[in-house]
Nucleic acid binder design. Structure first.
Length: 246
DNA sequence: AACCAAGACAACCGCCTGATG
DNA sequence: ACATCAGGCGGTTGTCTTGGT
């Protein structure tokens, strides 16, 4: 049962990397790239397993990584994305240029979670007892708890954005509600509501012209990246005046 | 100065997924 | 269709640092 370790442990070094090892790894990757992590340590002359090399590079040595403390803005972004995505650190990292999933995970566990708990406790102390729960009480991240609950990719759903140019996703107003229709004339928010457990009135107050423009713009932006589409949609809709807080 | 506890973060582990033969 | 493998991910652990006594 279970897979064999990615590398045999015999003779391979573990634990913190030395400066010399870092230099070897950096210069090898700069010269030859990292096509095959498993073969890399042997070719580079490192007594490490490929997995260890990959981790060291992606989490620390990669020159694209931004070092230093997280800005307030970055922290707010993490908090917001975590509400939507949950512990999907790599997905969060993908939206924070220069930051790694490991780094974000650490920051979350050491700083942000604590801060949020403090804020929550302070809020709980002030808030009267809730009488009933409403659809909007669903924590946003639970909508995306696992891939089963992820909305289908737009181009595979009944609401096809993939071929939607500016003329196919049209924002209109229907009974005071926001509607964005695809080229087949289907309201995309019907899909949004049913797939994500959003409250029934989710787009109802998004009737401001700028909101309509934003939503149809987002719908037109994504053709093949469902995750980014939904994240942007939820974040931006959440920021709109009069929308349920996300 | 020495010790200890808590915090911060680097690194590892086991599992999952997609690619390939 | 199945087995195998590499790479990626999230959870957890280990180690180093810092601050308090």
């Amino acid at each position: 049962m279970g897979r064999a370790p990615c590398c045999e442990k015999m003779g391979l070094k573990r634990g913190p990397w030395s400066l010399e090892e870092d230099q070897i790894l950096i210069s090898y990757i700069q010269s030859y790239g990292h096509g095959n992590w498993r073969a890399l340590p042997k070719q580079a002359g490192l007594l490490r397993c490929g997995k260890s090399c990959r981790l060291r590079w992606t989490n620390y040595l990669n020159p694209d990584i931004k070092r230093g403390n997280f800005s307030r803005e970055e922290e707010e972004t993490i908090i917001k994305l975590h509400e939507i995505l949950g512990n999907r650190w790599s997905a969060i990292a993908a939206r924070l240029p220069g930051r790694t999933d490991n780094e974000i995970k650490n920051v979350w566990h050491t700083h942000l979670k604590k801060r949020l708990n403090q804020n929550l406790t302070a809020q709980e102390a002030r808030r009267p007892i809730e009488i009933e729960s409403t659809p909007s009480d669903f924590p946003t991240h639970q909508r995306f708890k696992n891939s089963d609950h992820l909305p289908v990719s737009p181009q595979h759903s009944s609401c096809d954005f993939s071929s939607s140019g500016n003329d196919s996703s049209v924002a209109t107003s229907k009974n005071g509600n926001m509607t964005v229709k695809n080229e087949e004339g289907l309201d995309i928010f019907d899909t949004v509501r049913s797939d994500t457990l959003l409250p029934e009135n989710f787009p109802a107050t998004a009737t401001e012209p700028q909101n309509q423009f934003q939503i149809s713009s987002i719908a037109n932006l994504y053709s093949d990246d469902s995750m980014n589409f939904w994240v942007d949609l939820l974040i931006q809709v959440g920021d709109m005046p009069g929308m349920p807080e996300i």
